[in-house]
Amino acid sequence: MWEYTKKVKEFFLHPKNVGEIESPDAVGEVGSITCGDALKLTLKIDKETGRIADAKFQTFGCASAIASSSALTELVKGKTLEEALKLSNKDIADFLGGLPDEKMHCSVMGREALESAIASYRGVVPLPESGERVVCKCFDVTEEKLRKVIIENRLTTVADVTNYTKAGGGCGSCIPDIEAILREIWSLKQAAERPREPKKLTNIQKIALIQDVLEKEIRPRLQADGGDVELLDVEGNKVIVALRAMCVACPMGGVTVKGIEEKLRELVSGDLVVEER
């Protein structure tokens, strides 16, 4: 059972500003019924003062999703658009006296709906979806969103990222990608300090190192999802692997190979190419 604060319970049981504003000035819709939560935010904006005159919401989701949405509407009312945009997901969570870690994504959803509503009001055409790299296919989370939430909330672990965005909480095949993004964001400095010229590995050292990385870093993760990978051969910088068990049938197979390649490039040699056979 989740430990919700009194305020979350209050806003869940008696939500404020439920509904849809008729002929709204701004509409923000995020989430989907597939993912388990979704929010439609409608705003009335006073043209003269530029302030949010009214805000209403409709939410499909759990208690904290409903409470976060309601909290959002309370927070934005009376604010100018600039002020509203300064609200972070943490402000929503704080307003409610905090949310359980696993439920932080509910506050992120609120913040996203607000952004999307204001963008629509300002006539910003949302980027075509194809242009964005979707990292988590299970919950349709883009790299852009991940980076934003990671930086804003100073997230450092995959578990945190899952709590805040759901990414990685489904099939788990994007976890190496999330790790790579986290590493890139928080260890840019380290990377810069890394020696430019990696020491030259002999073939035997290289194969041993590849095996070691597969064994310690990659296989346990795949096995956790019922999959596996086997190293078949190494030809120069080409690493030939075979995916086993669940990975064979998994539509995310391509993603898995990519993840393995990233990991090997990082830990063994930057010029490695992974091929599946």
């Binding site: 319970k9 869940f12 049981l13 759990c62 208690a63 409903i66």
Partner: peptide, 14 residues
């Protein structure tokens, strides 16, 4: 349909 289970359970919990 169109509603979420946790919300139902917590309302029932009341």
């Amino acid at each position: 349909e169109y509603v979420e289970g946790e919300a139902i359970l917590l309302r029932l919990d009341e």
